[in-house]
Design a protein around this nucleic acid. Sequence first.
DNA 1: GTGAAAGCGCTAACAT
DNA 2: ATGTTAGCGCTTTCAC
Lengths: 334, 334
Amino acid sequence: MVTIQDVARKANVSITTVSRVINDKPDVSKETKERINKIIKEMGYKPNSVARGLVLRKTNTLGLLIPDISNPFFPEVARGIEDFAKNNGFSVIFCNTDNKKSEEKKAINLLRSKQVDGIILSLSFKNKEELEKLRKENFPVVQIDREIPDINYPIVKIDNIKSGYKATRYLIESGHTKIAHITGNTDTKTGQDRLEGYKKALEEFDIEINEKWILKGDYSKDSGYREIKRLLKQDEPPTAIFIANDLMAIGTYEALMEKNIKIPDELSIIGHDDIDIASIVNPKLTTLSQPKYKLGQLAAKILISRIEKQKFPENCKSILESELIIRNSVKRLK
Amino acid sequence: MVTIQDVARKANVSITTVSRVINDKPDVSKETKERINKIIKEMGYKPNSVARGLVLRKTNTLGLLIPDISNPFFPEVARGIEDFAKNNGFSVIFCNTDNKKSEEKKAINLLRSKQVDGIILSLSFKNKEELEKLRKENFPVVQIDREIPDINYPIVKIDNIKSGYKATRYLIESGHTKIAHITGNTDTKTGQDRLEGYKKALEEFDIEINEKWILKGDYSKDSGYREIKRLLKQDEPPTAIFIANDLMAIGTYEALMEKNIKIPDELSIIGHDDIDIASIVNPKLTTLSQPKYKLGQLAAKILISRIEKQKFPENCKSILESELIIRNSVKRLK
DNA sequence: GTGAAAGCGCTAACAT
DNA sequence: ATGTTAGCGCTTTCAC
């Protein structure tokens, strides 16, 4: 490892001067600057960010804390974050937590001890404590996707109530009145919100809410498969169903295929998220699309602004709108 | 930020003693140890990894350099890496390069300047230089998925020649003789290898290779869509096709659906990778499954062994076998 | 325009 | 069993 010392020695200057050159500071003659730059190149010198981080108390590193990078929702978000971060001189450490409180705590401690300058996180609903600790220290944080209520931190998310509302409303406007719902994990705000939107739409159109048609999923494909089977056992089946995410909808597809029930003729389905698969299954899944890349990008933008202390609304809530993607899994009755 | 100084002052001991306690070193009385641990807890002291990294010349951080985390192949690999890393006290910084040489170079420089202890990477085929630089310094590296030839670094990958061979052989054994191939990006070793496996199988079974039936894709869904359309314009179409990855196969599905060509009755398809979608499309796609999570896990294991200087074959090539997943997209003619 | 010196928070000889 | 000291590679005052 060649250090600033080595460069200074070779150039016959003090390390201060070399430091000035690599940081592009004034007060160094054009002549020496060029000479030092040449030597830097020759020796292949690269400043040590760790040493720099120690003195500057800034690592130019962001933490990303998510439930699971292999959940199809997150890779694109992560990409949006990394792209924006990279373009602004930051890199990102990612941690998977599987929504476990203990893992979340460990990950936050790890990131803090690594002195990341800020954290983008998607916490499980129950974990208010950790976020409050960060808040107390006024540590830069941006929440994504899931919001822990009553804590004053920026959040970038989809308006999930509205999104659930839009999905359900589309079913209603297509002529359906018997509409079921498979919820997401109702330990998450996201899951609760989509459910709330579902109820809101039914109420608005004076359709009675049938609790038997509200089935408790957990965002996993298996839970979609499981819950639709339970639904089908009921005496009076619905004609349409809003499923809180596409992954569960896919599970549903499999169960229906097994039972030889035709989508959308016998059951209309609308999903949520517009993951890759949605445009590929047969019939193509009507769903709501989340601007995932943008979500990540914006989260990184807000966090970095906060870190660099540029003006940005202190506790901005950025609510991105989801987009209805009409495909072939909903039958229009009118 | 509370530092080791603060703890030492409060405990009326030297920072050395505190250091001994937090690192669980001997030579400190049970009594003081307990007292200091109590104070550490009270003050919420967390050691500063950056300072530690500076003196120890070890950051317990891994770099992960991949083309694109939102490419469905990588999230699971990344998860395997992060899990193993975490369980062994490491965290991971990830970088997307889009297979661009310039981005790869920038990312490696960034990771080096951040003093990561090792790098797991999947480089574009043309980028031998950067890897050679690392090799010269004997820097810990593990390649995943794609191998740059002639460089003595550990690699964890699928045997893609064998995998292409297995895919093609399965088509042959199903009774097909007119077998086409849509290649992956032939700038990558992976793409070349699967093609080679395809040819090898044909040769072994004395089937003449028809260059017209070898179509040049680039691993993107669009290229699958595009190339199958070109294939269909030919006078004498094949009865089966091996497509170098599932994403392209999905593009193919769309084109065939448009043209109302039935899979597998009119054209049999075998893909590669077994991404989520494969088990969901209609008909379900027969494909070869890569142990992605294991791939990541093993790569991390080898890299960390190397870093910790535990014995592990210096230049081990870990060739994981892909697994044939028989579904419904190949028609058995015999 | 350039350099000497202090210090970021920690670990590791080397005393005592 | 505990403390003193030096130093990891860098930036930043302050002096010249």
